[in-house]
Design a protein around this nucleic acid. Structure first.
Lengths: 249, 249
DNA sequence: GCGGCAACGATTGCATGCAAACTTTGCGGA
DNA sequence: TCCGCAAAGTTTGCATGCAATCGTTGCCGC
């Protein structure tokens, strides 16, 4: 399967030098959008046949995703979509809380008035989605608000780690909130967050963000429990070699 | 160059399934120990000839290191050892401060008495190296103390990010402290840190760690400035394509 | 019937070849 | 002398082949 033939068919996507990048993004999307369920094997042959990505760039992509924590590679035995244990989920949320808090404190100092106005606009949009009970839109804007605050800290290292860690747990974050009371409380927390940001009160913004994140963990924990319950026993971690160095944390 | 011949020569190192891992660790060590200077090119041919690593595992290793931030890959133009700008150094230290603080707060709750005793022993050892003005030993134990506190938080995600980010800036951390006054102040800060940990006073431990980290940045900033001054113009970032996605932050 | 083992098929790990992109060198013109 | 350009040389990107390992199936002995 020559890429040359593909290049004819889709000249935009397959310029030389982008096969690995494409493979990485493709797989990442598949994992994050649920196209590849946690625990499922990623066979090199399967990916090659279904997505026309040859093995070398695919293997490089898998190595990248394993560092990001989205897949686990077991030597001589292939890669599987990473599966979080409850302990790992809690660890990820504690890390995210630290990042939220630190970024909030920095953002209170560094965010421009325009940025704060944009975040306020996102907040209003989110509230509208809440009032209309539009869950998907609500989640999308909610996520954008937190990202905007982190980015307002003007710290690329924090933003990078936040995005990467956030991606690992998003699956468990954006499925809770069915309970009206919980949802309402989340809205109230967001109001406090916005107030603290508007006041540029760094310490307060940190506190509200951290406590908001803690609530988020309570929800995610339930989602994970459900997932584990609904999973018969199919993909409960390959045996033998505990894990490769470049695999899990 | 067949690996088979090498396997005969060194059967321990070259079991199948470990070439990429070996390449990654070898390169990481080289970069961290200064064997490969920041900004220097990593030619695939050069590595292949000098270390007997064939190109496929080498390329996978470079992809891994680029996610870790130790190398930057420029498409079609190869990889270079990552070079930090002042802004990136500051961002890294802010991230490390956040991790130190969060880990400290967790560690104050979670560390066992035995772990605290171990950290106290390390502290005493460090003070002895300080009194003997043994800079290298002092740095080594200093680093071990901070790692031990982070690990005492019992959060693998935080430990993982801390190690990775720490590695990126270690070059700039462990060369300052020539000034006796600065060195003495660092010792005093460490005493406060140990006191807070012994008291299991989470908030205080957080504060002392964050402020200690801030002092660390002031030193590192000077080291980076020196480095940049001493660097004629040789490796001041490849031109053209700003950077690949999998390169820098 | 069940546990262990051997052969087979499937899958990964890695070395390498070829083509594209980049870099350098050398030349001609201004 | 210096700039621009073209050809040669170098280096990277990727596809693929071969060998080693893993998983499975079927068989034999108990």
């Amino acid at each position: 399967m020559q890429l040359l033939s593909e290049r004819e068919a889709d000249p935009l996507d397959s310029a030389r030098g982008h096969a690995t990048r494409q493979a990485t993004e493709r797989l990442r999307e598949l994992i994050l959008d649920g196209g590849l369920a946690p625990g499922s094997r990623i066979s090199e042959r399967m990916v090659q046949e279904r997505y026309g990505i040859s093995r070398t760039p695919l293997r490089e992509a898998l190595k990248i995703l394993s560092v990001e924590g989205l897949v686990a590679i077991y030597p001589n035995r292939g890669a599987v979509v990473a599966l979080l244990s409850l302990e790992e989920l809690q660890a990820a949320f504690e890390l995210l809380a630290a990042l939220d808090g630190a970024a909030g404190e920095l953002a209170a100092d560094r965010a421009s008035d325009a940025t704060i106005a944009e975040i306020a606009a996102l907040h209003d949009e989110m509230v509208r989605h809440y009032e209309a009970r539009q869950l998907q839109d609500y989640f999308r804007v909610n996520k954008a608000i937190h990202l905007a605050i982190v980015d307002a800290a003007a710290n690329p290292a924090i933003s990078r780690v936040y995005r990467s860690e956030s991606a690992r747990v998003d699956r468990y974050r954006y499925r809770g909130n069915r309970d009206p009371g919980v949802w309402a409380r989340s809205i109230r927390q967001h109001e406090q967050i916005l107030d603290a940001l508007r006041m540029r009160h760094g310490a307060l913004l940190r506190e509200t963000l951290v406590s908001h994140r803690r609530s988020g963990f309570d929800l995610a924990r339930r989602v994970l429990d459900e997932d584990l319950a609904h999973m018969p026993n199919q993909a409960v971690v390959p045996v033998n070699e505990p894990a490769p160095g470049a695999g899990r944390d």
